[in-house]
Design a protein around this nucleic acid. Structure first.
Lengths: 152, 152
DNA sequence: TATTGACTTCAAGTTCGCTTGAAGTTGTAC
DNA sequence: GTACAACTTCAAGCGAACTTGAAGTCAATA
């Protein structure tokens, strides 16, 4: 009565979630997930890991970095899947982020449209040069795309 | 009567455009910009370079990769700034891309909202797992974020 | 003329989210 | 008990968009 029936291997998690085993190991180094080990040091996951991985995927799809996701998941009980309440709280915060992103993209589009309309080439004074708008466009990766550095 | 008054140095371009000199040199290796050289091999730019760099910045802000921008700029006369007509053509194409991005983010937000509403945790069947939506979120960088690989 | 600051090239480093490969260990099925 | 797939760790590589550093050259000024 040692091995519970819901211990699954990394390749099974990989198959069921669509996330490569190497990626799952990588997530572990970042503290997004964790696993118990067999006597021979192999990972064994509880079934609830699938939900946790699913949430990670959704969050990534929303454009969050793994670090941000790690922070969100850190608020949850240990290595298990989130409860409906947890999920609701997270999703709500993420939706707000999404909406902000949509808003700035819309603003950007409007600027571009009016820029086309007026045929302006005095770009220096153009609304498109608003830094905030530009920063909001970037998705995952390329975090230091523009103006994020101290630059001595 | 050799040196025309509109030849500016790389540091001046950098100051006026806000783009680091190292970045300008990098752009040159990618064919985005180019410069004449002094006898001593230093770069000298025509003033029109500022408009060209400005357009690069706007395009980046819209989420285009430098390679994509290079392709767009390749249609323009040599190393000079774009004419109003050029700009209009490019901006129009870019606006279309922006609108597509806004549309998929909006769809994503709606999925997330309904997901919150129903409190669903059967994430596997959730609209948020639609790959197309997720792929559309990424901005500059992280091109192979999900599902872009052959994966033997 | 000498110095200083701006410039040059080239190679290597950075971040993010992984993948790939090497070299060795474990688990399972026969 | 042995074969073989699946696992382990660790180091290195990728791609985008740059930055940083080294080592040397050029331009302007006192």
């Amino acid at each position: 009565m040692r091995a519970l029936p819901d211990q699954i291997t990394i390749s099974e998690v990989s198959k069921r979630s669509g996330v490569a085993a190497s990626a799952l190991r990588y997530y572990e180094t970042l503290g997004l997930i964790n696993a118990e080990r067999t006597e021979g040091n192999q990972r064994r996951y509880p079934r609830a890991i699938l939900r946790r991985v699913a949430v990670i995927q959704v969050a990534q799809g929303l454009g969050l970095s793994l670090t941000e996701i790690a922070a969100a998941l850190a608020a949850l009980p240990a290595g298990r899947g989130p409860t409906p309440a947890d999920w609701e709280r997270m999703a709500d915060a993420w939706r707000a982020g999404l909406e902000a992103r949509i808003a700035s993209l819309t603003k950007l589009r409007d600027s571009l449209s009016s820029c086309i309309g007026c045929g302006c080439l005095s770009l220096e004074t153009c609304a498109l040069f608003n830094r905030e708008d530009r920063a909001a466009v970037r998705g995952a990766g390329a975090r230091y795309l523009m103006g994020d550095r101290p630059e001595g």
